[in-house]
Amino acid sequence: MDFILSALDYLLGVPGLGGTQVGFIYKGLLLLIALLIFTAYILLADRKIWAAVQIRRGPNVVGPFGLLQSFADLLKFVLKEPVIPAGADKLVFLLAPFVLAMLALAAWVVIPIDEGWALTDLNVGILYLLAISSLGVYGVIMGGWASNSKYPFLGALRSAAQMVSYEVSIGLVIITVLLCVGSLNLTDIVIAQKQMGLAHMIGLPQLAFLNWFFLPLFPMFVVFFISLLAETNRPPFDLPEAESEPGCGLHGRICLDPLFAVHAGRIYLDHHDVRAHHHPVPGRLGVTDRPATIHLDPGRSLVHFEDLAGLLHGRHGEGLCAAISL
């Protein structure tokens, strides 16, 4: 019985009410909510910026400047009727988006938000991130295969091949950072950047971006950035959804079902419905959190990276797609 009590304290503990620590669940919920709101606005920023690039207005109806668009989309997905193709392998079909969204969020467990503020301060944090992101492929393949149609399947194969191959180069780049730091712990890496960074050396600690490892390892950073674009299927590496095809790659058949509609992760998968084509953002965040902690400062850089990736992202088909629905 003792272990159940200690486990409960770990999960639900409240220091004032007899617990010895702040429960894991509260910290997790806080991070999750912050993350989802953040994601909603990253999506909006993506759509807005791309609209501006293509001289459109983008979402501007729901709320002031369209600020509530992502939440309207969420509501729509929650209330929509589910469609499961007749020939689909139901269990795998329903499992695939779950796997994808869950893994994307699971990666955030080890991200240090501030000193001593990582949900779990694993001493093999980097390895954990690599493991989680390499599992992301399964969501893609399962979704493609379970649809029982050749177009989503081909899209999934392309996407999976791309994800698997760029994992390798990302891993090698990360190893250079590990060699500089001498630890696999993400908190250690962030602290090491602070201590051996350029800004610290020239005595201007407020220029924190000079501390980040992208400067001493600049060639590696370039490789990393290219692999990042490829891994997230951003142009010029957007093979999984060919321009000339009417279907949207592996997402061609995945529509909504009530079971997962509640899960906000669904938004990201539902390209077909959002039309303005966002990439599955959890997957993208899963990747972007790596530069966030390794090459750049945690937290701050995420926006920065999303924007950079977003700016390089433009295709005729998408513009057209988006224009039709807006």
């Binding site: 390895l127 493991a131 390499s134 599992l135 994992e167």
Partner: peptide, 11 residues
């Protein structure tokens, strides 16, 4: 443990 996931499961 994590290497098992990266190498076997992931690749």
């Amino acid at each position: 443990a994590l290497l098992l996931v990266v190498v076997y499961v992931g690749a």
